[in-house]
Each structure stands twice: as C-alpha cells, then as structure tokens.
Amino acid sequence: MTLRSSRPRARTFAAASLTAAAALTLAACGSSGSDSGAGSDDSASGSGSPRTVKTAMGDVKLTGTPERVVVLDTAELDSALTLGVKPVGATHADVASGFLGYLPKEQVAGIKDVGRMMTPNLEAVAALKPDLILTSKVRHGDKYAELSKIAPTVMTENTGYPWKENFQVHAEALGKKAEAKMVTDDYARHVTDVTTALGGKEKASATEVNMVRFVEGADIRIYGKKNYIATILADVGLGRPAVTDKAADGFSYDVSPEKIDLADADAIFHATYGDPKKAKETQTTGSGLWKNMDAVKNGKVFAVDDQLWIQGIGYTAADKILSELRTSLTK
C-alpha cells in the first residue's frame, strides 16, 4: 500500500467542512419527548430533512439545518467545526486560550464565549437566539429544562469513550449526515495508513502503548481502554499493557509518583493538565523510577498536548493525533 502524507488527508477533512458549510441553512425547530437513547429513527437524514433525534433526554424533533448553534462542551465544538458548522456560541475550556489550541484560529474566531464549560451563562446563551444547543447529560443534564426553553437541546448521555456515536448524534441534529460519512470514511483511511506505516496489524498489536496524564490536584492517570484516546489506539491496532486492565470502569488506573514504573510499556505518551509541578510531572519525570523504565531508556517516551490528546474528543482532534502517533512510533 502506498502511504499517504497528512496534507492530502487534511484537505479531505477541509473538503468535508466546505461541503457541510454549503448545505441548506434552514431554521431548526423542535420539541422533546420522553424516550431515551441516541441516534435517529428517521430514514431520511439529509440536510434539511425533518428528523427525530433520539437523545439522552428524549426525542427531539428537528426540521431544516440549524443556522445558530450553541455548543457547551469541547466534543460538540469539535463535531460542529469538523462538519463545517461555525457555532454562534460556545463555552470555554479551562485553558489560557479559552477554546482549545488545536482548533484553527480562523475557525473559532468570532464565536461568542458563553462561559465556563461546567457553568455556562444561560443568559448569554439565550441572547444569541440559538436554534439548536448541543451538549451532554453528564455535563448539563441538570440544566436541560432551562436550556430546552431557549432552543431545541440535543444531549448525548456521556462524553469521551462514546465519541463516535455522539458525533453521529451531532451530525443528525445539524442535518449533516452526508458530511459525517465523508469525515468517518477519511478517518478510516487515515487509520489504515498509520497501521500500515507501523508495519501492519501484527506488528502494531505487538507494540504496547500507554497513555499517562499528570493532573494538578489528582493522582497520575494511566489510561485504560474505555476513553477517547484508547479508542484511537485500538483503531490503529496498538497493543496495551496489562496494567490498563486495572483501570476503574476502564477509564484510568491512578498511581502515585512512587508507582510510576507500573506505566512502563514499549512506548509512553504523556500529557499534563495544570501546572507541571503541582501535577507532579516535574517530580515524576525526574525520578529514578521514571528514568529506569524501558520506554524511557529506549527513547520511546513522547510528551503530547493535553488539549489535543485528552480534551479535544472529536474527529478533527483524532486526525491530528493519528499523524502524531505515526510520526512518533516510526522514529
């Protein structure tokens, strides 16, 4: 197989966004029911088609393509921008840049900041006169009644691990199912390219990879198999060390700096949330335990951007992560 560079792939993602942006821009209207779930029971899911979106809070009926969308979390912002939809408003992440730094500045320019992710300013949201609000129950389920009075509100149950399913819900709500297929098809091609670059499925599966996150105010996280980044590693076919099976609910196995050697693997990617000293990154990576790990001694430890690898949660982030995986693991 001929390996492709990241540039043609990036253009494909951009083409999907441009196609999405050129779709019909009809106003959305909706109401909520009592059924729960995710996805849609309507066979017609093209741009502008009347549709019933099954959400964590019940059915939401929509007609047309929303023109004024407000997103209240990072995954929803990634989804909208990936599909060529520029929200009129979005909450900001707890980072200096507000919106996550991996997102192109020209795409987020002009988006109204409606407050912190966990505490959105509902008055600011209402002032934007949205015709659709995207978020999740785990983040804002307690605000659903208020939000749904402002505009039809589509909530997925959770965020992170089910990001692919959530993306389809977002695409359905936005009237962008055709564009979503372009995105997922391109992601699948990119995954194949990376696996091939690593020597094929067998060699990839024999390479055990860990993801470690240093978090200010918490223990060090060795990520398990049920989170956003784990799904990307699994798609590429990379192996995971046995320690990942100890992760609580599959999410993470938390350790102190004195047990960091449990994170050893063929390759380690690590990110930091907050101040490196307060997150114990400085202390840990300077320790003998860290320096004596095989991954460290073999030069297979890679510091990565927390905003991209952990907080992004979407196909635009995933595309960039795949490129970085390929570059790091083929050195």
Rank of each mutant, 00 (worst) to 15 (best):
Y187K: 05
I229A: 04
I229E: 03
D219A: 15
D219C: 14
E157V: 10
K203D: 11
H170W: 15
A173T: 12
P162T: 09
M155Y: 08
Q168N: 14
A188Q: 07
Y223R: 02
F214N: 05
E216P: 09
V154H: 06
T159R: 09
K176H: 11
A204N: 02
S205L: 08
M211G: 13
F167P: 04
N158G: 10
H170E: 15
N227W: 03
L198R: 06
N166K: 10
A234E: 11
H170P: 14
A145M: 13
G200M: 04
I229D: 03
K177L: 09
N227V: 08
T231M: 08
V183C: 01
N158E: 11
D193C: 12
T195K: 05
D235R: 02
Y161D: 11
A242E: 08
A151M: 13
P162Y: 03
R221I: 03
K176Y: 09
A197L: 13
G239S: 00
G200T: 06
I232S: 01
E208Y: 14
A178C: 07
E165A: 11
R240G: 11
R213S: 14
T184Y: 00
P152D: 15
T192D: 12
V191R: 00
P152T: 15
L174T: 13
I150C: 13
P152W: 15
K143I: 13
K143P: 15
A151Y: 14
N227F: 03
E179R: 03
K203P: 05
I150N: 14
A218P: 14
Y223T: 03
P241D: 01
N210Y: 03
K164D: 11
